[in-house]
Design a binder for these strands. Structure first.
Lengths: 114, 114
DNA sequence: CTAATTGTTCGACGCTGATTGAACATACTC
DNA sequence: GAGTATGTTCAATCAGCGTCGAACAATTAG
């Protein structure tokens, strides 16, 4: 029925996002208090938006765990995801997240033990 | 043997402190990603240094858990403790912690869902 | 159509962390 | 001295999180 030409056929259901404004401080801190996710965020911060697919990150975990970590970051308002074909691309929600938690991403991205 | 007149006879052994400089980012985030500890930090930030004893905080946990939370904050370089008589007083390590993790305490103390 | 790629979901496992109650240690008070 | 107040430590419990392997879904390539 040609609804609206299906914006973009997804990998599966479109990932459900949470805006940083709706994220509790403890949730944001907990999301970033993990070495794997920290690495994801840092690599993401060093890349252009929508440039990196989920599988393109250098982290020492399997696919299942990776998927879980991205879900956590999504729920914490840290990343946004968009499906392109069979790949899922990512973007760091810098401006939104920075307005909700000023300085937090800077701290994470620029910390010495990167 | 009059060593040095025992600086200050402690509740027990003097609490072992960790300087913020020796704290990993993930450890700092994890320490603050807890509602009880968040509350301790906030109340502490609103009080004068060495003014609050451990038992003077309004948190919904028993003494054992409280003691544990303070130990976590100590290990994360967030608080400093000093024994006075049978009481243990606290101080937020603002300057040191701010130098190591700029903006983090501000974020925690000034967050909306306080 | 078949096969390969990308990522999610499920069940299970192990580990860490928060909590409690009880026992203990120290210091103050009477 | 005995009794009280303040915290710590221990053992046990319980919930949650990170991880994996396997099964599944959707898309693309041949």
């Amino acid at each position: 029925m040609a609804e609206t030409a299906a914006t973009r056929p997804s990998h599966r259901a479109a990932p459900s996002h949470t805006h940083p404004d709706e994220v509790a401080l403890t949730a944001a801190l907990a999301a970033l208090a993990d070495p794997v996710r920290l690495r994801l965020v840092r690599e993401l911060a060093a890349s252009d938006e929508w440039e990196r697919t989920c599988g393109s990150f250098d982290v020492p975990v399997g696919k299942a765990a990776l998927s879980h970590h991205f879900a956590v970051l999504r729920d914490a308002g840290v990343v946004e995801q968009r499906d392109i074909g069979r790949k899922r691309t990512n973007r760091l929600r810098r401006p939104e997240f920075d307005r909700r938690f000023p300085g937090l991403l800077d701290l994470v991205v620029n910390d010495r033990d990167g």
